[in-house]
Design a protein around this nucleic acid. Sequence first.
DNA 1: CGCGACTTTGAGCTATCTCAACAGCAGTGG
DNA 2: CCACTGCTGTTGAGATAGCTCAAAGTCGCG
Lengths: 241, 241
Amino acid sequence: MYALTDRCWYSKTHVAAESCTACGVREVSICRDVCNDTLRDMEDMSQRRQFSARQTLFNEGDRADMLFNVLRGMVRLYKLLSNGRRQIVGFALPGDFLGLALEQTYKVSADAITEVEVCRFERRAFVNCVENRPDLLRSLHAATSHELETGQEQMVLLGRRSAEERVAAFLLALRQRYQRIGACDATLWMPMTRQDVADYCGLTLETVSRTFSKLARDKLILIVPDGVRLIMIDRLQRLIA
Amino acid sequence: MYALTDRCWYSKTHVAAESCTACGVREVSICRDVCNDTLRDMEDMSQRRQFSARQTLFNEGDRADMLFNVLRGMVRLYKLLSNGRRQIVGFALPGDFLGLALEQTYKVSADAITEVEVCRFERRAFVNCVENRPDLLRSLHAATSHELETGQEQMVLLGRRSAEERVAAFLLALRQRYQRIGACDATLWMPMTRQDVADYCGLTLETVSRTFSKLARDKLILIVPDGVRLIMIDRLQRLIA
DNA sequence: CGCGACTTTGAGCTATCTCAACAGCAGTGG
DNA sequence: CCACTGCTGTTGAGATAGCTCAAAGTCGCG
């Protein structure tokens, strides 16, 4: 898949190649298991696009004209409340598909945390394709189911865990996701801010910062620029057992 | 659909008829939009079953041999943490399908809150059917997407809302679900305990009770046996705006 | 009637939030 | 080259929403 010994998997030099068959994220995307005909259809429909850090991909409520497959970088998906409170419902990594539900309007907002490259589809065309291609629908359903399960885990985290457990669970889940896309490393790349982590974990940024500090003081993690190195994964796991 | 002026829609006398075409919950189930052939297949696979209140339908981690469509009653879906903490991730009502993800093991536990009647499928047979019936897959995907969206709303509730907002949002969401299945009424049927509501809203049962009392004191709701009557829906809505 | 399960209410406690100060660092411009 | 600014992160101290523990109230049911 990627060269993974360092964090170059998300760097500019490892952009997925132009062709789907050579695409670097195909192995972890909804297009992994589709047949060749379907893949060709998808390739014909797709356009490559880039977003710079902090650019918006779409806003909750907008007409969902475009669907995205993330190729590189990190995207935050979130909902806002009237008074500015924000809940991040997920961080999208390479291989993640935005718009799984195929619905007419976006149900969350999305913006780029880092520079982001995506494979973009027009929704109408994509939906048409899905209608004729049960293998693609099957993939979409599997991905949606997986998201649903992740969401249920997150409800447990938000509803029933302490601050320390939330942060530990967040770190371990992030690690698992990097493993899944073949980008694992004892050092987790964390381009998001403390505020982002807080808005994902249902905490304040100060509590997140204090909790990171405590975990570092206890030598379970090491805080490094743009990331965290997991030192004692077993003890992190015991925290959330 | 049902006779709805009172709460009889969930009573024993309104059990869905034996035939799928005459089924009382079909209009709100995954089988709503499937073609006649698919429906016949599903009917052949399905078995009617009953569970009494507090009976377990399945436990998280078990092999998912059976899938369920709820016909009558209410089911709680939850996850447990080691020390007994519980997060309820959803209440299943008539028309809700349990096992949308078609996965090999259950990701949550489910037990009956009331007496429950279900339409039950063997997973293997069901999955086989889905493979050959894109229309059913389409329905499953739509239902799964809807669950995913509901889950994201719930993350906002759990991560960023106050106790009062959580309870208000819970009541309004419950009302919407009853509306959706054609069982709406100013009085919401709430057979679950305060502990269940607490475990759904990420609160303690005392906080839920106090919040209900406050909403009742403020005349936004009226607490009645086995339910809550919504008196000033607009003010509840303003609470969560 | 009396028991058990659920609910309500009260009072004190604490995990987390809020507010505030400060530190590190990158970019900017004199 | 260095002051300055803005942004992110850290740390401290006091405030508070919701939790915990406890007691009493309600209701259905044998």
